[in-house]
Structure formats: C-alpha cells, structure tokens
Design a protein around this nucleic acid. Structure first.
Lengths: 258, 258
DNA sequence: TACGGCGTGGCAGCTTGTTGCCACCGGCTC
DNA sequence: GAGCCGGTGGCAACAAGCTGCCACGCCGTA
C-alpha cells in the first residue's frame, strides 16, 4: 500500500504505528521525515515493555533545532543513535512485522510504502540493524572528547582549500588571509579533528562528512532558501550559514615556556 | 516468497527472471551473488528490446576474475556501471514489476525474497536508479586517467600508518622500512590518488574506500622505466609495481651503519 | 581618554615532507 | 659470467608546514 504525504500516512496507517507492542524503530535523515502531524507525540516511548529505537543522520546535530529534537527523543525514553556513514533509506519498523519505507525526498508530497510481507520486512529490518549496530549512541557521541565538529563559514572555506591540494601560501592568498592566519585556521581545524597529521585530518574530515561543506561553499552566495529549493528540501534542513563557537578563539597561553 | 540458496532461487523463480521483456537490472557486491547456477548464461543480453543494467561494487575490479566477469557482461551487451560508494543491498529487478532482494551474506545458504507489490518494487527500483545514476560507466571508469586505485598489502599498511598520524620516521621504523622507502610508498600512493597534498590524499583515500582495496589497478603491465617516462621523473624515484609479489628481494642491510 | 582583551600579520627557528641522485645488491636471462 | 632490471637505502637540497614571539590595531568598557 502506497501513501502520499505524511498526513495520509498518519490517517491511514497511524493506528498501525501506534499499535507497536514490542519494538518501534525508525531511521530518519532529517527532522521532517516522520513528522507525522498530530501523532508523533502520541507514540509512547516510556512504555515499560516497548523499545523505541531512533537512528538519525549525524547532520541533524549541525543545528540547534536538530540537537533539541534528538535530546528530547532521548529524554522521553527512546534509544537514540547517530549514524555518521549516512542512511541508505528512511524507514519505520513496527515489531519487526511491518515496515514503512519513505520514498526519496523531492518536490511535492513524499510517498510512503507500507509493507507487511515477512521476507521484505525481514530484509528492511536487517538493513536497519546493520546501520544501528554501526551507529554511535547519542549520549556517548555528544560527550566524546572530540565530538564531530561543526564548522563556521570560514572554517568550511579553509577546509575546501585544504581539500583542493593547494599550498598554504596560495590558499591563504585566495581566501584573503595572511599565511599566518590561514595556518592558525588549519591548526584549529586539526585540533577539532583531533588529528596529528594533515593526512589523518583529511581522513577524519571525510569520515565526519565535513567535506560536504565544500559543496555548500560553491553555493555560498545564494540565499539559504534558494539552496533549499535547488536541493528539493525544506529550508530548515539546509545549513548554509552555520555559526558557531566551536572553534576556540585562541588556545590557552602556555606559561613557563621551555 | 522467501527462498534459500541460489539453487532454490533458480528453480522456483528462474522462469520469472528469464521472462524479462523490457528491462533487467541487478546490483551485486561480489561475484557469488546472483551466480544462479545453470542459468546466468541464459539471461539474454543482446536481445534487441531488452535493456540489461548491471551495477557492481568497485571492489570487484580488485582482481582479475572480477575484471573478466565485468568485461564479459559488457561484451555480451549489458550496460555495466561501477559504484564506488558501496551498494546498500543486492537486488534484481525485472521490468520494474518484480524484485528479488538478497539477504545479508553469512554462513549457510543465503535467503532471497521475491516481491511483486508495486509499492515495494517501486521503492527498490528508485533506490537502484539512485545508485545507478551515481555510478560510473564501466568503460569510462576503466579508461579514466586516474581510476580509483587499489592497494596491495604493503600499500594498505602504509595507508594505515599515514592515517594514524605518525611522522614518516616513526611509521617507517614500525613497518620495517627505511625512511626513503617509506617515502617512496607514500609518493606512489599520492600519485595513485592524484593528490597534491597529504590532506587531499586523506580525503581521497576515505572517499574511495581504499582501505578495502587489494591490488594495483593501473599501469601494472608497464616496465618501471616507462612509468617513470610517463610521469617525467627519474626511474629511481618510481615505485612502479604495487603488487603482492613485490616483497623486497634484497635482505635488509642494517650492519655497519653509523 | 585610557586600558585590557583579542585577533592579525610578519618574522623566524625548527620540524617534517618531497624528491633527485647514486652506489649497491639480488634475481633472472642470455 | 655478464648485463639488465627492479628495488633499496643513505645523503642532500629544497619545499612546505608548525608554532612561538611580538608589535600593532580594533573594539568594548570603565
């Protein structure tokens, strides 16, 4: 059975989702997927015998709204994990017997397919569990000594320059920075990535999806809404202008120089 | 309907696969998936009105058998593409109306689920098309100036050392190589990755999933001098053949060194 | 207005990395 | 046995990167 839009999904299949008895699992790449108008708050999470697993893409941590959402889900009793390797698809699985597959995002209303066939549900469940097992617990992820950083505009420009293979002197000139300042930015990035070499920093940056910022770098002169339209996604999911105090202004001065 | 093993799949659903009229699509991560004993050769590929799409994981190019397989599929008329971002699942889709989903590989016989539900097949097809569109044509991939390289055992060790953030001197010592030789390996890796800086190399390495690779792909049949000439560098600076059998033939001379 | 905090940018000392050169060695082939 | 090929390892010239130091300017506050 295929449904169009979250509203129709809620109306025609909401009761199936609310009927979860043992386990409710969902994987979401953004905040809008599974918003289930008028219903989400009714999905029980602190029910004694119900296990709720929520798997989110790491990009949701990029802004305050996303972080609030995830913290709220965890506070209400759901097991929340963060996937840093991307979610191949977005789904809800109820009691391992019923699955809802979200169609690809795009203009117009999104389509959802409800499946009950044991073989299909088992496959979807297996894929979900594989992603779940590879993901990191939200609390651990947030409290890690060096959680994946979020870069500000200039941080992303520096990242892009590093990724281009240019020498520091050339990169600095192109960004309108002095060599010393550019190298300060690189050093800050290295600290954020907890890397001991530039190669390691490159691996980390890609691993953490930081290089995704490079694509946004090319769109930096466009208003955020325009970027959202081009990508066919809601504006709130586009982080074109991430601000942040995530880059320490200046490392603490070390006294007693050797 | 769920089947166990390629033989049962062939016996009970083979006629459905052979019945493709318009389009036959499959995604495979290894050579064993969809081996379909006694049947694979019977799937028509040069049929005038039948389009056959075959999507393979890039790792299949790592060895001779895989390359032969893919070349043969292309020779017989199939459209063949290479996915470098990994295949989320392995499937066959017939005429956009029937799909077979392969269960995860593991001990014992693998399970396959045959689905006909339009909504499910449409979703599976959409996922396949997304992966297909993101993939590279086999011929273009093979002829690209710098196709994604694959590494031999030592190449992977060097990659691991680079990724660990160690300084060259330390890394060389730990691998039992001289500093010069280690730096030759790094230089070879940089050339394979077509990177101008170590940071860029790190991004590329992660991007291409090099840690999974096995063998040098390009230039493997050329003499070292020719490789040096092509790169415009002296022969002594070229580490040409990153093959498993390039274990140093010369015992390490550590004696009498100041 | 003066002062402190913060960031910048130039300089420099030092470290790390890049690559050419060349002598040497072992294996293979003729 | 000689010669070729491929690889190693030490040395060295040079380039690139790392970071401390310090003078300077801007901004906010008292």
């Amino acid at each position: 059975m295929t449904l169009r839009g979250e509203r129709e999904l809620t109306e025609r299949a909401g009761h199936l989702l609310l009927g979860a008895r043992h386990e409710f699992a969902c994987a979401a790449g953004d905040l809008l997927t599974w918003s289930l108008p008028g219903m989400r708050a009714r999905i029980p999470t602190d029910h004694g015998s119900l296990t709720v697993r929520k798997l989110f893409d790491v990009r949701l941590l990029a802004d305050e709204e996303g972080r609030r959402h995830l913290d709220e889900a965890a506070r209400r009793g759901a097991l929340v994990r963060i996937s840093t390797t991307g979610l191949p698809y977005e789904t809800i699985i109820v009691d391992g017997r019923l699955a809802v597959l979200a169609g690809p995002p795009g203009p117009g209303e999104r389509s959802y397919t409800v499946v009950r066939s044991p073989g299909v549900v088992a496959n979807v469940n297996a894929l979900f569990l594989a992603a779940w097992n590879a993901a990191a617990d939200l609390a651990e992820f947030r409290s890690a000594p060096n959680p994946p950083p979020v870069l500000d505009e200039e941080g992303r420009r520096v990242l892009a320059m590093l990724g281009s293979g240019r020498k520091d002197e050339v990169a600095a000139r192109e960004l309108g920075l002095s060599l010393r300042t550019y190298r300060r930015r690189v050093a800050a990035l290295m600290r954020l990535l907890d890397a001991d070499s530039r190669f390691e920093a490159g691996l980390r940056a890609r691993e953490l999806g930081l290089a995704l910022a490079q694509e946004l770098y090319d769109m930096r002169d466009k208003p955020v809404q325009q970027i959202a339209d081009l990508s066919g996604v809601p504006r709130s999911t586009v982080y074109g202008n991430l601000k942040g105090d995530t880059v320490p202004r200046q490392p603490k001065k070390i006294q007693n120089r050797a």
